[in-house]
Simulated scan of single mutants.
Amino acid sequence: MADDQTQPADAEPVAAGSASDADTSTAEGSSASRLRWWRRRRESRLNRDGGGTGEPRWPNQLAAIAAAVGLILTAWVGWVGVQASREQIKQSDLALEQNERQQANMVTVWSSPRNRTDLFVANRSLDPVGRSYMTVYPVRATKQGDETGLRKQVDITFDGLAPCTQYKITLSDVVKTAPLGPQASKGNALSLQVLAFSDASGHSWARDFAFKLSDRQGKRSEFDFDTGSPETTVRIDWIQLAQNGAESKTIDACGPNS
């Protein structure tokens, strides 16, 4: 009986050892859980700050911003350069045009400020002007306007316009030189239709009835000599006019700075 009630000597130590192992396992599980939580938190922070590389992300962001600013500055500098080139081309074209028009601007025509019986043509440049012609009409001017029924076209040719020279053409000179007929001879004014000429380089120009200059290079003028019929057009030249009293004189002030 004593032997049956007696427990083995190692029974209690086994039970105690099992409890200790359980406590140890629980502690280890708790530590592992905290370790996993810490690792997840650390990985989350690294992913947020540096894309998981362990490095801060803001240096990369600054580099991207700097690159974008650099591209913008490069584009702006390029745009400024293009605008500057366009302005240079524009100024160059303007200077070329002004140079081409320099002599043409100094070839002028106008009517008498007191009456319309006199027309004046002047070449104020230092170079001769090539073959030129002007078309005029003797008209009867009234307060209501010009009576077109009296109009007959008169084409006046010039072998050239001498430099620094003014030409005066009067209605009486035209009437004495051109066979206008009795009706057209009753006119009391000269009406300019066009003055066409070529500058020293052979470039064609024209001034219209309002004395405005226009470039006629490469253009067929509606005032070409072959457009007028013998019934409505009379052709004379400056030499004939001069023989009937037309005058020319030298201009004292001429040239680009006049």
Rank of each mutant, 00 (worst) to 15 (best):
M1Q: 08
D4R: 12
Q7R: 14
E12P: 03
P13H: 03
P13Q: 07
S18A: 15
D21V: 14
A22I: 15
A32R: 12
L35V: 13
R39Y: 09
S44T: 14
N47G: 12
G50L: 03
N60R: 15
I65E: 11
I72P: 02
T74F: 13
A75Q: 09
W76Q: 11
W79P: 02
V82A: 08
S85I: 11
Q88A: 15
Q88F: 09
K90T: 14
Q91E: 12
Q98Y: 07
N99Q: 14
Q103N: 04
Q103C: 02
V107N: 02
T108A: 12
P128S: 10
V129A: 01
M134Y: 02
T142F: 03
L150S: 00
Q153A: 13
Q153M: 12
D155Q: 14
P163V: 06
C164W: 00
C164N: 04
T165Q: 07
T165L: 01
T165D: 04
Q166N: 11
Y167D: 05
K168E: 10
V174L: 00
G181N: 00
A189Q: 02
L190S: 01
D199W: 00
A206E: 06
K212M: 10
L213H: 01
S214G: 10
D215Y: 03
E222R: 10
P230S: 08
T232Q: 11
I236T: 01
D237W: 03
Q243I: 06
I251R: 03
A253D: 13
A253E: 13
P256G: 05
